[in-house]
């Protein structure tokens, strides 16, 4: 198991935070012992699917289930788009964001772009804290050189996607979304399809990403475009 001091969440959420990743070979007794040493205000615990022995132990210890996190991959070779998606995809272009675009993006996020993440769904937190966390996350990634693209339809920015190079031809679009004016336009799939297109342009091998089971729409879109699930983690939280 790994215990990570998620110090950045102090800035994002205003609480001290530990993120714990349980690995498949971890023994229940060891997990129990290690968890007892954690004294942060907010703890996030990721347990691989199938480890019901650990799940039973941690729920006894006051951890609550908040979501399942699906690790999805796309090997780029086989991208399904139906005729209508293809027509729409051809009309939606994308471009690297400049500073002004980033300001617009942050304003869209601040106005409540996301509502299915574990922060906005947690009554201990608020949608404002969730937005602050996403803005902090993107800012940190921009500092590390991660690309953020805007999606353009008829000269208007309709959404965005992040595009992080995690090495060996693998790209991780950790966040994407459609802006409020186009949220009901049925073009959400372009936030998933365009990163595939960009990865192909860069001669990449794979897209790797995570989707929460609280976001059924995103799961359905990924499946429709040819992603498959290769790992599931159950995510538990505890406030102290």
């Amino acid at each position: 198991m790994k215990i990570i001091d998620a110090f950045w969440e102090k800035r994002n959420l205003g609480v001290s935070c530990s993120e714990v990743e349980i690995e498949n070979g971890d023994l229940v007794e060891l997990v129990k012992k290690e968890l007892s040493t954690i004294d942060t205000q907010y703890t996030v615990l990721k347990v691989p699917s199938g480890r019901t022995d650990i799940i039973l132990e941690i729920t006894r210890g006051g951890y609550f289930f908040i979501e399942a996190s699906l690790h999805l991959i796309h090997k780029l070779g086989d991208c399904h788009l139906n005729g209508i998606q293809e027509r729409l995809a051809q009309k939606v272009d994308y471009q690297l964001m400049n500073e002004a675009d980033i300001r617009v993006l942050f304003s869209e996020i601040a106005s409540g772009m996301f509502n299915t993440d574990r922060i906005s769904l947690d009554p201990y937190f608020s949608s404002e804290q969730s937005a602050k966390r996403y803005i902090g996350w993107i800012s940190d990634e921009l500092d590390k050189g991660t690309s953020v693209f805007k999606l353009i339809y008829k000269n208007e920015t309709v959404g965005f996607f992040t595009f992080k190079d995690i090495g060996e031809g693998v790209y991780y679009p950790f966040l994407a979304g459609i802006y409020s004016n186009y949220a009901k336009a049925g073009i959400g799939f372009t936030t998933i399809y365009k990163p595939i297109f960009e990865a192909l342009k860069k001669k990449g091998k794979m897209i790797s990403t995570y989707v929460s089971t609280n976001n059924l729409n995103a799961m359905r879109m990924h499946e429709a475009i040819g992603f498959f699930c290769d790992k599931i983690n159950y995510v538990f939280i505890k406030h102290s």
Partner: peptide, 26 residues
């Protein structure tokens, strides 16, 4: 949702034998 929208539009185009402009799909 986005997936259901595409499926509904595809059926609509088949049933009424039309092809919607992208602005109309949106």
């Amino acid at each position: 949702d986005s997936v259901g929208h595409m499926s509904m539009i595809a059926t609509l185009e088949n049933v009424f034998e039309i092809m919607l402009d992208t602005d109309d799909i949106i």
